[in-house]
Design a protein around this nucleic acid. Structure first.
Length: 871
DNA sequence: CAGGTATCCTAC
DNA sequence: TAAGGTAGGATACCTG
């Protein structure tokens, strides 16, 4: 029975489907737009690599005997000429060498690379399918139904499609491995797949959590929640450890989720499952599959390798067919919270809902808690599986991954777990293949030592400046790449010159004109720029018509395009990427420095004051009445008119500068107007009172922005900035002195003194953490000592997480610190070292007050003057 | 106690 | 043996 519908590719893999003749099947695990899961078995694609004669271009017929030898090799099935392809040594004849199976490609590449230039030889087979058929994650697929389970659409279920035994046979015949745990299995050919418009897929997510014994590492209980497009069901497991693991595994296999989440699963739950599986199953791999066979493949001896979750080195976990997405990592990336415990994060996200973060179990005493009140432990465990789902919902993590997959034309798994260079690959290789450019392999080996120069940062003077306009270049690096046609394929590598070339300002790196050859990178960036404009227009139209769902989708897509565009520069300025050259990155930043410096010097020549500039931005003093008040007066007040006039003149000045300095391909935008700007004289650290296009305070670089500052410092500094920007520096100093006095007297709230820093480490197989591999002197670092103390006390620590601590004695060397455990186990706060905190406050705040003549020493001395604070 | 090194985090 | 970049500020520890 044939079936056709739209679906989204979650993940893909391939397997051999016979040797004589050699056949390979691509397995695509998908979620249909209508909700059920599908395994697509795609036939008809054969693995290949591409070769050319080494060195300078030579006539194709000189390759004849070498080609004959190549054709005689075991792995090689067929060789076909591709004609001339572009390479950095010129255009030359290439041949497509089809091979038996994907796994032979790297082997063959190594064997022949002394004889041939080998290209297109490090591309994952499933990506090959998306590239060659020009598909993205959203597809329309048509195929023969080999299996239709209970959740498959009713009209697909009948006696034939629903019979397990015969289904397994049909699947094997189509090159699949057996009865996949998906709702449907379809067989199709390459031609049966086509690109579909993006839609929001109703993915299924599985969230789980383990509670384990601190003494023995044994799993005491577990919980899981399934989210099926918003519909949730809760499950809990207790009893024998093996039964718990089997229960979880059965649930994964029957509910068949696309995403697997939880809090800290990457470094805790997933490795712990593997460790306990080893303990319980001994040597039999198939016992292991019953305990932990979460891979989306049948439970068969032949699938032993794909059934279990895996992680190479210290990288992300991979589960064939599914996507492990740690809620902790998503929180870290999108929220950047000061602390990262689940309790802290849930309070941050849902401050109103008390029972969501009720603290009732002491995780550091899990064995005792489990012995005394197992029901509460299970309840606690269930709650900790619901929160990660709520977090992913709130952060829109899944929708973002899907949008990124859609704009980079890759699988959702690749968008979720792969790195920037893979997403770029997906677009670049596709275009290279279509425009006859050979695709070199990624460069391996040691990193380049000499760095390229980066952006220009202007010196900033200490003090306050009134009425400033901030302008910046729109998408500076992408614009430079587009307007100068910067690409590996347009770089002039010999010393030829031509008037049509685009020539970089100082090193005189040359690029071909667009008329001669349009570079891959400029071509793609231009496409992305216009597609972002289209998504933005569609977003506006959807909002207009009240179509919330469409507006959401278009907003996700335009944002994903932005992210993708901004990552081009980094990848092409890197030392390893396949289409890279050191001159590329260097000339992009060279143009950038040149452009911004030119504007600065033009403005200065005309007598304007450039206060600051960083890479693509410029801060200029507006020529307005210097006596106008900088803090906004009441509208009824007599000074209001003066302020308001300064404001409109500043805005007009900003608009005028933007217009004047905007050129074709380099758009300077008027970003904000400030009534006051302050810096203590350090680059990348400044504050501004924004008065246009909205009213707010802008802070960059200062401790206020840093997650490793402490709350009291951030709060005091923010208040200080408010006062300084209002012109009340004396009050700021007095306020600061009173804060420091309180700290010295021991009156500060210790919760405001927590310092939190990320701490690395390597996870050992038995679950313990090794710090000495990543740190020269681990015990010399306060946060490592705090992490060690956490571990000693039976609390979770996973490599990379932030550790909160209080300094208790700074006179000791190294200083004494204690971890902050109040959130997690309700422990009394440590007693802080008043001298240390007073000194840190005075130092950080003193740097700022120094601009007005008050030093750190004066803040610390406590010699407060009579002030408005003394009532 | 000055200066160098290791480390973190941020701006762009 | 996997991989977006550079510029810059700040802190703690260690050494001489």
């Amino acid at each position: 029975m044939q079936w056709e519908e739209e679906m989204c590719i979650v993940h893909g893999d391939n397997r051999s489907a016979g040797d004589k003749p050699p056949k390979t099947v691509v397995e695509l695990w998908c979620r249909a737009r209508s909700g059920h899961s599908v395994t697509l078995l795609v036939q008809g694609l054969r693995p290949y690599l591409v070769v050319a004669q080494k060195g300078r271009p030579q006539p194709a017929d000189q390759a004849q005997s070498a080609l004959e030898f190549l054709a005689s090799m075991d792995e090689v099935v067929e060789i076909t000429p591709l004609g001339d392809l572009w390479t950095d040594k010129g255009e030359k004849p290439h041949w497509k060498v089809e091979v038996t199976q994907p796994y032979t490609v790297p082997r063959l590449r190594k064997r022949i690379q002394d004889l041939w230039d080998v290209t297109s030889a490090d591309i994952l087979f499933v990506h090959r399918l998306l590239l060659d058929c020009d598909l993205g994650p959203h597809i329309l697929a048509c195929g023969e139904i080999l299996w239709a389970g209970e959740r498959a659409p009713a009209e697909t279920q009948n006696e034939t499609t629903g019979d397990r035994t015969t289904a397994a046979g049909r699947i094997a015949e189509a090159g699949g491995s057996g009865l996949y745990p998906t709702d449907m299995v379809l067989s199709c050919n390459l031609e049966d797949l086509s690109k579909a418009e993006p839609f929001r897929t109703p993915f299924v997510t599985f969230s789980f959590d383990l509670e384990t014994s601190i003494q023995t590492n044994r799993i005491l209980c577990a919980a899981a929640v399934i989210d099926r497009a918003g519909e949730r069901s809760e499950h809990s497991f207790r009893g024998e450890e093996g039964d718990i693991m089997e229960g979880l595994t059965k649930l994964v296999r029957s509910e068949d989720p696309d995403f697997i989440t939880g809090y800290n699963i990457d470094n805790f739950d997933l490795p712990r499952m593997l460790e306990r599986m080893d303990v319980l199953s001994g040597r039999s791999k198939m016992d292991g599959a019953e305990l932990y066979g979460w891979g989306r493949v049948p439970i068969l001896e032949s699938e032993a390798n794909r059934l279990l979750p895996k992680r190479q080195q210290n990288r992300v976990w991979r589960i064939p067919g599914r996507i492990p997405l740690d809620a902790w990592w998503q929180v870290r990336q999108t929220l950047r919270p000061e602390r990262e415990s689940l309790r802290y994060v849930s309070k941050l996200l849902w401050p109103e809902e008390e029972d969501m973060h009720k603290l009732d179990i002491d995780a550091s005493q899990m064995d005792r808690e489990w012995a005394e009140r197992p029901d509460e432990v299970v309840e606690y465990c269930v709650r900790d599986t619901i929160l990660p789902l709520d977090i992913l919902d709130r952060l829109q993590s899944v929708a973002r991954k899907e949008a990124l997959a859609s704009v980079s034309l890759t699988t959702v798994e690749s968008a979720s777990l792969d790195t920037t260079s893979r997403w770029i690959d997906s677009l670049v290789i596709r275009l290279a293949d279509r425009t006859n450019v050979a695709v070199p392999t990624t460069i391996s080996g040691p990193r380049r030592r000499d760095q390229i120069a980066g952006g220009y940062v202007h010196e900033v003077e200490s003090g306050r400046q009134p009425w400033i306009v901030v302008l910046d270049f729109k998408s500076m690096y992408p614009s430079i790449m587009i307007s100068n046609n910067i690409c590996s394929t347009t770089l002039v590598r010999d010393d030829s010159t031509d008037d049509s070339h685009s020539v970089s300002p100082t090193t005189e790196t040359r690029y071909l004109s667009k008329d001669e050859r349009i570079g891959l990178v400029p071509h793609l960036l231009e496409q992305l720029m216009s597609s972002r404009d289209q998504h933005k227009a569609a977003l506006a139209a959807a909002r207009e018509s009240g179509d919330e769902a469409e507006a959401f989708l278009q907003d996700q897509l335009q944002y994903a395009v932005k992210i993708l565009m901004n990552s081009f520069y980094g990848v092409f300025a890197s030392s390893f990427y396949r289409f890279t050259h050191p001159d590329l990155g260097a000339s992009i930043t060279e143009w950038a420095r040149h452009n911004i410096r030119k504007i600065i010097s033009d403005l200065e020549t005309e007598g304007y004051d450039v206060v600051y500039s960083d890479t693509d931005s410029i801060f200029v003093r507006a020529p307005v009445d210097a006596d106008a008040p900088i803090n906004k007066p009441e509208e009824s007040s007599s000074e209001f008119e003066s302020w308001d006039r300064a404001r409109s003149e500043t805005i007009r000045f900003g608009e005028r500068l933007a217009e004047r300095f905007t050129k074709e391909g380099a758009e300077l935008e008027f970003e904000t107007a400030l009534s006051a700007f302050f810096s203590h004289g350090a680059k990348k650290r400044y504050v501004g009172r924004v008065i246009w296009p909205r009213e707010e305070m802008l802070i960059r670089g200062y401790e206020v922005r840093r997650t490793d500052s402490f709350a009291l410092l951030s709060r005091t500094m923010t208040e200080m900035f408010e006062m300084i920007l209002d012109g009340e520096e004396w009050a700021a100093v007095e306020m600061t002195k009173s804060v420091i006095d309180d700290v010295k007297e021991g009156r500060a709230n210790p919760a405001e003194l927590i310092i939190s820093r990320s701490c690395k480490g390597t996870l050992k197989r038995d679950g313990s953490v090794d710090f000495s591999k990543v740190y020269d002197n681990p015990d010399g670092l306060p946060y490592v000592r705090a992490a060690k103390e956490r571990i000693r006390r039976g609390l979770q620590f996973t490599p990379g997480m932030k550790v909160g601590y209080i300094v208790t004695d700074s006179k000791a060397s190294p200083m004494d610190v204690e971890p902050w455990l109040v959130d997690e186990i309700g422990e009394d706060p440590p007693v802080y070292d008043p001298t240390y905190y007073a000194r840190r406050l005075a130092k950080s705040l003193g740097r700022i007050t120094e601009a007005f003549g008050w030093s750190e020493k004066e803040l610390l001395s406590g010699s407060r003057q009579q002030s408005i604070f003394d009532f």
